[in-house]
Design a protein around this nucleic acid. Structure first.
Lengths: 221, 221
DNA sequence: TGTCAATTGTCAGACGCTGACATTAGCCTC
DNA sequence: GAGGCTAATGTCAGCGTCTGACAATTGACA
């Protein structure tokens, strides 16, 4: 469901039942409270009971919305990832693989704000990203999620190029290399003190442009 | 301590005190029992109490040797990673970055057996690798550890090339791309049913040779 | 041998997470 | 609009990971 929203950029227009709307509100409240607490006092120092209490539901209810404490921390990441995947699918068919990935990245970073603000303030999303990068257990999960996203990206690339993903290693390889570059940019951004999305976008573009020179046999100083 | 052993390939010759040797034995016993249990019945289905009981120590003692349940699962990986890092440091200074990484990989896979068997049977190490790749929580930690290793590799590459790691993105970029390729190879190996190290080494080499063609503007079919 | 310090065991408890069952509250029909 | 159906929630008990505190044990060394 979150997937569809992110891809189409719409919330289901019919208000549906009261029941359903209440569920959505509870879920959103849990996400917001959780991210607020995580960014304020840290992920580890926040207990599930605290989050539940802030929304005035029982701990058991929290675990009916999220499989575990980590999941709620990635709620807004989930949207962002879907958004990026959609951006790749929207790139023109003629584009070469790496160019398409590059284009999708810039497109996605340009329009991420709108896709997110339904769920959480973009600024909170950005602060949470920093928390993820600096919390070992969350970073681990984040890297696994990225790996899963990369698998989907590779399949899309294979589709675009009309290749069999199990026979040709190149789709997975571009994506893996691309992913590596993205991570370097993201990590550097986290370590800096510039908060804006634009900075991150430019940093990413800059690093992507360095792929060629980096693979040259001899590096010039 | 494990680091030094792996790098130098030696166990501290003086037997040290009885106390110290007993500690080493307990530690090794915990690792072996843990990996045995993990590979036999799965990581999640193995409790810390079980591991402790198999070695006849208290649960509390287990947690004095390992910070958490995950750590013991990566004991042999730790050796392998150090071994690989040492292999990179041993590559001739003139070699280009990517070539050095490639060479180090093949060197390391060639000599990994000897470095490991002090701790666990290499065959157990390989089976454990599969468990890691197929257990979500372990995979996550594994990816984070790889990321940490990549940081060290990048610093070594920067040193070799006489570059400032914070000023030039290329060291981190090669390593990131390289890491991506390695992961693709490793994952494919896990999915196959060939168990041997040689297969993994060849698969890795094959994928590394594909980096060039993969980055070509247009892929030929 | 006796003292000192390191290692281990025991115990209590916080926290994440789950199954089972009772309770509440939206929905739908008559 | 009363009553029955079902989904959502709360309550409770319990397992597993992990930690702090304190007591008991055991190697080291004078």
């Amino acid at each position: 469901m979150t997937t569809d929203e992110a891809v189409a950029g719409t919330t289901t227009p019919p208000p549906a039942g009261l029941r359903e709307r209440k569920k959505q509100r509870t879920r959103a409240a849990l996400v917001r409270s959780a991210l607020e607490l995580f960014t304020r006092q840290g992920y580890e120092r926040t207990t599930v009971d605290e989050i539940a209490e802030a929304v005035e539901v029982s701990q058991r209810t929290f675990f009916r919305y999220f499989a575990n404490k980590e999941e709620v921390a990635f709620a807004s990441q989930e949207s962002a990832e879907c958004h990026f995947f959609a951006a790749l699918c929207a790139r023109p068919a003629g584009e070469a693989p790496l160019a398409a990935l590059r284009g999708a990245t810039l497109d996605a970073w340009g329009s991420i704000g709108g896709a997110l603000e339904q769920l959480v303030p973009p600024e909170l999303h950005m602060r949470m990203y920093r928390v993820i990068e600096s919390t070992p257990s969350l970073l681990a999960v984040h890297l696994r999620r990225i790996a899963e996203l990369e698998e989907r990206l590779a399949r899309e690339i294979a589709r675009r190029e009309g290749l069999d993903i199990d026979a040709d290693p190149r789709p997975r390889l571009v994506v893996a290399m691309f992913g590596g570059v993205i991570r370097v940019a993201g990590k550097l951004w986290t370590e800096g003190d510039e908060d804006s999305v634009v900075t991150l976008r430019d940093l990413t573009a800059f690093h992507l442009d360095y792929v060629g020179p980096t693979l040259a046999e001899k590096w010039d100083k």
